[in-house]
Amino acid sequence: MFSVKIKREVKEKMERYRDRVNWAEEVRRFIEETIRRLEAEENFEDVLRRLEGARWQVPGGYSAALVREDRDSG
């Protein structure tokens, strides 16, 4: 649990809309979405690092063979 300091004017506005907005739920949702986004960014960066370190090649002539095969099938 934690607390957040907000300006008085913001608190007054929140009070005005408290019957329409569950502020605690909004804060929880924001935190959860932010965590999901950050984890996704970290996972993406990890995948990129792994791909950069990968040592694999396409056999010579492979692309040309695929293009030729595609032309011949049409």
Score class of each variant (00 low, 15 high):
17 Y>T: 05
51 L>N: 02
61 G>N: 09
73 S>L: 13
25 E>K: 08
49 R>V: 01
53 G>R: 03
25 E>G: 00
7 K>H: 09
5 K>A: 15
4 V>K: 15
25 E>H: 03
18 R>S: 07
51 L>Q: 04
20 R>H: 00
74 G>N: 06
33 E>N: 06
43 N>E: 12
24 A>K: 13
67 V>P: 06
12 E>K: 06
56 W>I: 10
53 G>L: 02
25 E>S: 00
16 R>S: 00
14 M>E: 07
49 R>C: 07
27 V>G: 02
12 E>G: 06
26 E>S: 05
17 Y>A: 02
21 V>W: 01
31 I>L: 08
19 D>W: 02
3 S>N: 14
25 E>R: 00
50 R>D: 07
61 G>T: 08
53 G>F: 01
44 F>Y: 13
45 E>L: 13
35 I>H: 08
67 V>R: 15
40 A>E: 14
18 R>P: 00
37 R>G: 00
56 W>S: 03
50 R>N: 11
29 R>C: 00
28 R>Y: 09
25 E>T: 06
55 R>V: 06
25 E>Q: 05
73 S>K: 13
29 R>T: 06
61 G>Y: 12
63 S>W: 03
17 Y>K: 03
21 V>I: 04
9 E>M: 02
59 P>H: 08
49 R>A: 08
1 M>N: 13
1 M>F: 13
7 K>M: 09
11 K>E: 10
66 L>G: 11
6 I>E: 13
